Simulated scan of single mutants.
Amino acid sequence: MTSYDGPVSDHFDGRTFFDPDGVPPKSLGEVLRWQFGGDRQRQAWPDWVENEHADIPPPRVTAGVRLSFVGHASWLIQTAGQNILIDPVWSDRVSPVSFVGPKRHNAPGIAFDRLPAIDTVLVSHGHYDHLDLATLSRLAATFNPRVVTPLGNDSTMRSADRAIRVEAFDWKDRVDLGGGLAVTLVPTRHRTSRGLFDRNKALWASFVLETPAGKIYIVCDSGYGDGIHFRRVRDAHGPLRLAILPIGAYEPRGFMKDQHMNPADAMKALADCGAGQALAHHHATFQLTDEAMDAPAKELAVALGAAEIPRERFVALRPGQIFEI
């Protein structure tokens, strides 16, 4: 078990990280009651869904921004001649072991051997559906990219593969990526762990990516709370051209609301952060919680209609689809 060793701060007590505006993580007993309680209503997912789309990205994009949805929280962002991966997961399972745990229900929207040369990887936190060591090792061996992550997650990566070229940063650190690009790590309402005894021993974050076409707010995993995190990003980093917001893994609501947004929460987050456009993710690839596979996208469409917001303002792509600025 690895942990971060650093000075005490307003979100690190010398042993674990915490969100001053959040809530403590659920106890182990609460987790077990949700997982194994007799009243659990877990919806069945189809074993496998064939993708309707498969992207073959260009080697580089120099004008504007090209975003390709890989699946779950994984994206390829191409801009200013650079290729950036977000929380890359090409593994079949997101689990400590390869034979049990949440499995993939559709293929990545980009085949790994179709990836362009990757320059930078952003990894938001240590949960297995975001920090996938097998994929990071494969990327290191193939492209040797720079990996940017919050404090403590670098120890997890280095202990698994010294070839992963990782750098760890704190909330509010701005990292120059070169070529007119930069990324700032910002607080988000979440938590992290890799096992039973390392809760919040590493930090978690969202990202604000500065591009020539505007700023992109990348929220890989977050609860909503009272929206303070999103309003602070608006105030500190606005105006935002685009927000990538999670809409899945939210049932049962009473258990999940502190760490995962549902579509209604994501719409409030969009209003709070003030982005002109949003893309939805964190749904329909790995069954982490109890809702049906297609429920997040359907509920997002209903919520947009009820609020009389055009559907094209908040789009739920499918793996292999692209969005361009």
Rank of each mutant, 00 (worst) to 15 (best):
F286L: 08
L240P: 02
T156I: 14
R231M: 09
M256R: 03
A295E: 15
D10C: 12
R199C: 11
F112T: 09
L181R: 02
Q277R: 13
P116G: 05
I322W: 09
F36E: 07
P116R: 01
G126A: 13
I216T: 10
D272V: 11
A295G: 00
Q78P: 09
Y224S: 10
K257M: 11
L139H: 05
P187C: 13
I228R: 14
W48Y: 06
L317M: 14
R138G: 13
Q287D: 01
T192I: 04
T2A: 12
E210F: 01
G274H: 01
L240D: 02
A264R: 06
H11W: 10
K172M: 15
V175Y: 09
T142F: 12
E324W: 10
R318W: 09
V186E: 06
K103F: 12
F18D: 03
R158A: 14
I309P: 01
A63K: 15
R93P: 01
G14T: 06
Y128G: 03
F36Y: 13
W45T: 00
V186T: 12
I228K: 09
P57S: 12
P25W: 00
L240M: 04
L242I: 08
A284Q: 09
M267T: 01
M1V: 12
R42K: 12
G179I: 04
V97S: 15
G64L: 01
L139V: 05
G71I: 03
F36S: 10
V89M: 06
R33Q: 15
T16Q: 14
T79L: 12
P25G: 02
Q259T: 13
G109R: 02
R189S: 13
D13W: 07
P46Y: 03
P212R: 09
V97F: 11
P24R: 00
V100P: 00
E210N: 14
I309S: 06
C273K: 03
I247A: 00
W204I: 02
Y128L: 14
L151H: 08
